[in-house]
Design a binder for these strands. Sequence first.
DNA 1: ACGCACCTTGTCCTTGTGGACAATAGCGGC
DNA 2: GCCGCTATTGTCCACAAGGACAAGGTGCGT
Lengths: 209, 209
Amino acid sequence: MSTPEPLLILTTDDLLAERWQALAPTVIRAREIEALDTWRKARHRLVVVDLGTHPAGAPPMWTEPAWRHNAAGLAILAASSRPEDDEGLAVLNAGASGYCHSHAPLDTLRQALEVIDSGELWVGRALLSRLLRLVDTRLPRAGLADWAAPLTEREREVAHHAAVGESNLAIADALGITERTVKAHLKAVFEKLQVADRLQLALRVHGVR
Amino acid sequence: MSTPEPLLILTTDDLLAERWQALAPTVIRAREIEALDTWRKARHRLVVVDLGTHPAGAPPMWTEPAWRHNAAGLAILAASSRPEDDEGLAVLNAGASGYCHSHAPLDTLRQALEVIDSGELWVGRALLSRLLRLVDTRLPRAGLADWAAPLTEREREVAHHAAVGESNLAIADALGITERTVKAHLKAVFEKLQVADRLQLALRVHGVR
DNA sequence: ACGCACCTTGTCCTTGTGGACAATAGCGGC
DNA sequence: GCCGCTATTGTCCACAAGGACAAGGTGCGT
């Protein structure tokens, strides 16, 4: 059930550290942000960070420059003992892969770790459903179909995958077709959108000019 | 790895149905929305619904009255072959517990099922990160200083040129150096920013994820 | 003087990409 | 039935990209 990946626990709270020991077969405990950098250099990626124990008066650790720098490339599950929605949004936007309650059931935490270890994001249902409600009322409903207008359904799919950086082979696997077919679709996409390559396509799709 | 829970597959697509057979030890196949009601009455809750095969012209199934009625109490993973963000939001707001791509890797689908089976919500990282960006109003994207922080002056220049789609040779000419040197700078950039190639670099530079 | 960070360039090699020829098959409209 | 659009896949090829070895030069602080 648990991931075989080693886990770094970043907290100054001894009780939390003890509780989280059960989260993975190999668990390392640290107290300083710098440990993130060491962790990444050791070619690990899985981290649980306790947001609750920053010294009174000091700014939240994830707003410090060292945070974003050290967080790059890691899969970080941020845990707070007072899960305020805004804090969750802030820390996710600061590069964390997940946000949950410090005292959530261990099974839930394990699941969250598995999810972020596989490259996805984890947001608990409370914050997530609030997000959904928020966005539903403020969506511009606008030009998603703009760049996609002249494209066929299949071309749209391929273009979308290519625009987020996937290789032709990855796209082929994702869509259950051959790499050659992906090329054929992309060729059509490039021509219809008047772009030279996938990078220009990505810029177009993401609204950069 | 798979949940022991029985799984209902709702699709008219034979290929998808066959592919999804591996998702759970017990899998039932259905083609009609009414199957949801039967499923709940049998005291099951786990469902994968293919959104991609509604008959042309007909409204999406999750907007039908029968949907919301039958979906109550079930944990539904909606899968679409054309993952448009708006569709995802719509179906989640209509009562689904998850939204993903029809041809996502089976491991990802299994994970999504486990998550929604445990009462949480599942949203793929593409849609989720877009949600986060949409909602995030206060942090003004921080622009240049952010991604460029760990880079040297020269690396910044090269990165900027590469991020707008210029080839290595074009960058070399623009900066009056050799193509080889451009490669050297880009190699450093990729490493410092933890990205694999220039497309990922472009997305980072332009504030997409 | 020494270390260190930065800028610069070299060659070899593997891989991904995109274009240039193709072909087959389904499906809807005329 | 024929035509056109779409989806699919094939081979061959030229080239850009990025990694893996390198190494020589500058300026700066200790």
